[in-house]
C-alpha cells in the first residue's frame, strides 16, 4: 500500500505546530497502525530527520497508552479497538490519512502526537479508589455477597483503560464517560458504597478543575470508546452526584 500521511508535528509544548505531509510506500495491510508509524519513523531516522513522537506501550489494547486522532476519529475508523489494534487493512491503497493528537485543553500536547493525560490520574487520585486495610488483615473481597448483575455491570465499567478517546471524540472535550465509568465501578459494589458520596463529589470537582467541557449527551464517546463503555455510566454518575450533592 502507498499512502500519504498528514501528521501533526510539534517540537514541544510551546511550539505552534503544523500538519506535515509524509508519503509512505510498501505498507502491508496486515500491519497495525503503530507498525506503520514504526516504518515511517525508521525511514525518517535513516534520512537523519526527527522521528514522529507517539504514545504506545502494551500494543495489545489493554494499557490505554496509545491514542491518535486518525481521519477524524479517536483510534481511527474501526470500532472497539485501540490504535495499536487498528490494522492497515481498514485503509485503501492511495489513501490520505490525517493523524493528529487527542485535542483538549486538559490534554496539552507534549510533542508531536504525545499528549499529557495526567489530568485523568489526578481525577483518579481524587476518589477513584476504596480505602482498604492492607496491613495483613485484609478482608477477602469474596466474603461479601454481590449480586451477579451488579458484579458484571461494575466489571464492564472497570474495563475502561483511561485512554482519553472519550474526551478526544467529544465535541465539548468532556471527560464524563471516563469519570462515569470510574464512579460506576465502585458505586455498584458494596465495598465502594461506603465512600460513594465523597468519591463522586471529589472526582467531579477535580474533573471540572482540569478544564474538561460539559457533556451534552451526543454519545460520540460511547461509539469511539475502545472498550465499549456505555452512556449508562454517565447517567449513573449523574444520579450518584445529585444524590450526594443534595445530601450536602
Amino acid at each position: 500500500m502507498n499512502l500519504t500521511l498528514k501528521i501533526w508535528r510539534q517540537k514541544d509544548a510551546n511550539d505552534k505546530g503544523k500538519m506535515v505531509d509524509y508519503p509512505i510506500t510498501g505498507i502491508e495491510p496486515d500491519m497495525s497502525f503503530l507498525e506503520m508509524l514504526d516504518v515511517l519513523n525508521e525511514a525518517l531516522i535513516n534520512k537523519g530527520e526527527e522521528p514522529v513522537a507517539f504514545d504506545h506501550d502494551c500494543r495489545e489494547g489493554i494499557c490505554g497508552m496509545c491514542s491518535l486522532y486518525i481521519n477524524g476519529e479517536a483510534h481511527g475508523p474501526d470500532r472497539g479497538v485501540t490504535t495499536c489494534q487498528l490494522h492497515m487493512r481498514m485503509f485503501n491503497d492511495g489513501d490520505t490519512i490525517y493523524i493528529e493528537p487527542f485535542r483538549a485543553a486538559a490534554f496539552p500536547v507534549i510533542k508531536d502526537l504525545v499528549v499529557d493525560r495526567s489530568a485523568f490520574d489526578r481525577i483518579q487520585h481524587a476518589g477513584g479508589f476504596i480505602s482498604v486495610n492492607t496491613s495483613g488483615n485484609t478482608i477477602d473481597a469474596n466474603a461479601i455477597p454481590v449480586n451477579k448483575h451488579d458484579a458484571d455491570t461494575a466489571f464492564d465499567a472497570a474495563t475502561c483503560i483511561g485512554c482519553g478517546a472519550c474526551v478526544a471524540s467529544c465535541k465539548n472535550s468532556s471527560a464524563m464517560l471516563f469519570v462515569g465509568a470510574k464512579v460506576s465501578q465502585f458505586a455498584l459494589l458494596p465495598q465502594g458504597k461506603v465512600e460513594a458520596t465523597d468519591r463522586v463529589l471529589n472526582m467531579v470537582k477535580q474533573m471540572d478543575e482540569e478544564g474538561f467541557g460539559n457533556c451534552t449527551n451526543t454519545g460520540a464517546c460511547e461509539v469511539e470508546c475502545p472498550k465499549g463503555i456505555s452512556l449508562e455510566n454517565i447517567a449513573r454518575m449523574n444520579r450518584e452526584y445529585l444524590k450526594a450533592a443534595f445530601k450536602g
Binding site: 490525517y98 472535550s173 449527551n217 451526543t218 460520540a220
Partner: peptide, 25 residues
C-alpha cells in the same frame, strides 16, 4: 462558550458524523 474553550485547537479533520447525530452536534 465553556465547551468551546475546552478545546482551543481544532482538529484538521474531524468526522463527527461517524459517531453522533447532526442534531446533537
Amino acid at each position: 462558550i465553556k465547551n468551546k474553550s475546552a478545546r482551543q485547537i481544532k482538529y484538521a479533520k474531524n468526522n463527527g458524523a461517524a459517531n453522533s447525530s447532526w442534531m446533537s452536534r
